[in-house]
C-alpha cells in the first residue's frame, strides 16, 4: 500500500470557536492507481491534501506514505518527503517567476538530486512546451503555466502525485486538454495520483472516487 490514512482529524479556529474540518478520515491508495477526491467548497479536500504532503499538521490520526510515518515527521522530514516522493500540482501553478521554463521544469528534480535532462525534454515535448523553454512564466498563458507545473512535478519522478484543482484556473477547452495530457503522463510514469476536484466530469476520469462531506469520507 503506497498511502494509508487512518482516523485523521483536523480543525481550524473559527469566529465561533474551533471548526472541525476533518473528523476521522480513513483512506488508502495503491501504487500506480488514481483516486478522485470530491466535495463541496470548504469540505476539507485541500486540507486533507496538505496534510498528506506534510504541509500542515493534524490533531489526531496517522498518515503512512511509502513506508514513512508522515504524521511523525518533523519539518525537515516533511521537506525531504516532498522533495523525494511526492509531487504537487497546485491550482495557482506556483512557478518561480524569475526562472525560465526550462529551469522551472528541472527545478524539483534538481532539488531531489535526480535530474535527467532527457526526461525534461521528453516531458516538455509531450506537453507542447518545447518552443517556450526560454520564456519566463509571466510570458505564458495559464494553460502553458500549468503544463510547466505538471512537467516540473513529473520530472522529479514522484511516487505519488497530489493535484489540487489543477485545472481550476483554466478555461474549459484548455482544462480538458491539460488533464488528458497529465493523466497520460502519470500513467506512463507509474505514479499514483490523488486529485482534489469539485468537477464531477474530472472525477469520472479517475479509477476511484471518494466524496468528502462534513469532514468524513463516503
Amino acid at each position: 500500500m503506497l498511502l494509508e490514512v487512518d482516523g485523521l482529524t483536523k480543525s481550524y479556529a473559527g469566529p465561533e470557536g474551533p471548526v472541525e474540518v476533518l473528523r476521522g478520515v480513513d483512506l488508502a491508495l495503491d501504487a500506480g492507481r488514481t483516486l478522485a477526491l470530491t466535495g463541496d467548497s470548504g469540505s476539507g479536500k485541500s486540507t486533507l491534501l496538505h496534510l498528506i504532503a506534510g504541509l500542515d499538521t493534524a490533531e489526531a490520526g496517522r498518515i503512512r506514505l511509502d513506508g514513512a510515518e508522515v504524521t511523525a515527521l518533523d519539518d525537515a522530514g516533511c521537506a525531504a518527503l516532498r522533495r523525494g516522493r511526492v509531487g504537487i500540482v497546485f491550482q495557482q501553478f506556483n512557478l518561480i517567476p524569475s526562472l525560465d521554463v526550462a529551469a522551472n521544469i528541472a527545478f524539483q528534480a534538481r532539488l531531489a538530486g535526480r535530474h535527467e535532462p532527457e526526461r525534461d525534454a521528453r516531458l516538455a515535448g509531450a506537453l507542447g512546451l518545447t518552443p517556450h523553454l526560454a520564456k519566463y512564466p509571466e510570458q505564458l498563458s495559464g494553460g502553458q503555466q500549468q503544463r510547466v507545473a505538471i512537467a516540473r512535478t513529473l520530472a522529479a519522478r514522484p511516487k505519488l502525485v497530489l493535484a489540487d484543482e489543477p485545472t481550476g484556473n483554466l478555461d474549459e477547452t484548455t482544462s480538458g486538454a491539460v488533464l488528458e495530457e497529465m493523466l497520460a503522463l502519470v500513467a506512463e510514469t507509474g505514479a499514483a495520483l490523488l486529485m482534489v476536484t469539485h468537477s464531477e466530469a474530472l472525477a469520472a476520469r479517475m479509477e476511484r472516487r471518494l466524496h468528502l462531506s462534513r469532514g468524513r469520507l463516503a
Binding site: 525537515a76 521537506a79 518527503l81 516532498r82 523525494g84 506556483n94 518561480i96 524569475s98 527545478f107 524539483q108
Partner: peptide, 16 residues
C-alpha cells in the same frame, strides 16, 4: 514570499 512558499512546498527545508 511566493518563491519562498513554492520552494518549501517543493521540499526545501526551512532551515536550509
Amino acid at each position: 514570499r511566493p518563491m519562498v512558499r513554492t520552494l518549501r512546498t517543493l521540499g526545501l527545508p526551512l532551515g536550509r
